[in-house]
């Protein structure tokens, strides 16, 4: 079978799995901050957390592009689990030569933390910031030793519960301090982690946002064709049509930006690709969220209507792992350094 075919089947399976398990009750429960163990078990049984792990190491061996499309689908379904995080964590951990981890894994998107001492005596020094599902998940951080060497440190979940802190979509984002924490294991940082984990996280969030936007827009189109006012569907009004057409333009541009990032994964300049993706997708996220709510009227402002599962994620994810301004500065600094004539080859190819 073609690998393309295999990945399509896997994506379809994931779609069905998410749809089947994401009942209204499961969603509501997850939003209280409780860990959705049953949901996680179902996702783990399907092998999704190991999607990016090579087959030789017991994973599904998806190409990075396909794995990131799976991340996009998890966004489409507003999946309340650290699936993207665990996929990344396992890919990184296995890249150090270790076995994949059986538990959920999360990462810190802050700059590398400090590291004191060496080997078994190494101790982390720093702050992991807001860690997705940081109270239940194992944590990967990039740590830098005194000599500037970069390591990937695996940290166990905290022993005592962390103060509850959730993002706008009520996904757990507790803050975790690492001063004096002893990692469970310390490995030389694999190549993928060389630029730190923030760009990789930014690419994950960009993919999730594209998925969530797609579904939010699908809702808005459905609603525009069904909701009647003045004796006809609101989608017949030109003002509504133009809002949705402009949202479609934002979506197409965001998709293009996210696509270039999934092609760049593992390549020489992941940071630049991440910057383009997070800056463009983040901007589209805000505009699309605004438009889909406008189209839905008061109905979209209710808890009843599922639109908010998507838009609250868009509002959170656009700020996680760096907002638009941060990544725009990364791009802008490079461009200002290289000069005007260097821009075109940078984008179109040397």
């Amino acid at each position: 079978m073609e690998t393309q075919e295999i990945s399509r089947i896997l994506l379809d399976q994931a779609d069905r799995l998410f749809a089947q398990h994401l009942t209204r009750e499961a969603r509501a429960a997850a939003e209280t901050g409780a860990w959705p163990e049953n949901l996680w078990q179902a996702v783990a049984a399907a092998g999704l957390p190991l999607a990016m792990v090579p087959e030789t190491a017991g994973g599904a061996g998806l190409a990075p592009g396909d794995a990131l499309r799976l991340v996009r689908r998890s966004g489409f379904h507003a999946l309340p689990l650290p699936l993207a995080e665990t996929m990344l964590g396992n890919a990184l951990w296995v890249a150090t030569g270790e076995k994949p981890l059986a538990q959920p894994v999360s990462f810190s998107a802050t700059p590398p933390t400090g590291l004191r001492g060496a080997g078994d005596n190494a101790i982390l020094d720093g702050d992991a910031g807001a860690v997705p599902w940081g109270d239940v998940a194992w944590l990967l951080v990039v740590a830098e030793d005194a000599a500037g060497g970069r390591h990937l440190a695996l940290v166990a979940p905290p022993e005592a519960a962390l103060p509850q802190r959730r993002n706008l979509a009520f996904e757990p984002r507790p803050k975790r301090h690492l001063a004096g924490v002893r990692p469970v294991a310390l490995r030389p940082a694999p190549r993928l982690a060389a630029p730190g984990l923030r760009p990789l996280g930014a690419i994950l969030r960009a993919q999730q946002m594209v998925g969530a936007m797609e579904r939010a827009l699908d809702y808005a189109l459905l609603y525009a064709n069904e909701r009647q006012q003045f004796g006809r569907p609101i989608g017949k009004f030109q003002a509504v049509q133009h809002m949705l057409a402009s949202a479609a333009g934002q979506f197409a541009a965001a998709t293009a930006a996210a696509d270039q990032a999934l092609e760049a994964w593992g390549g020489a300049d992941v940071e630049f690709a991440a910057a383009l993706a997070k800056a463009r997708v983040g901007e589209a996220a805000g505009k699309i969220a605004e438009i889909v709510h406008q189209v839905h009227g008061a109905m979209g402002f209710t808890q009843e209507h599922p639109l908010h599962f998507l838009t609250r994620r868009l509002w959170s994810w656009r700020d996680e792992c760096g907002n638009e301004a941060e990544w725009q500065r990364v791009i802008g600094a490079r461009v200002m350094q290289a000069g005007g004539e260097a821009l075109w080859p940078m984008l179109a190819g040397a």
Binding site: A253, A256, A257, A275, R280, E283, Q328, R329
Partner: peptide, 20 residues
């Protein structure tokens, strides 16, 4: 930083358009 932000935004838009 303000210039970098504004330029970075335009370049991100351009990259997406080129691809589209």
């Amino acid at each position: 930083p303000r210039s970098a932000e504004a330029l970075g935004r335009l370049v991100a838009h351009l990259a997406a358009l080129l691809r589209m």
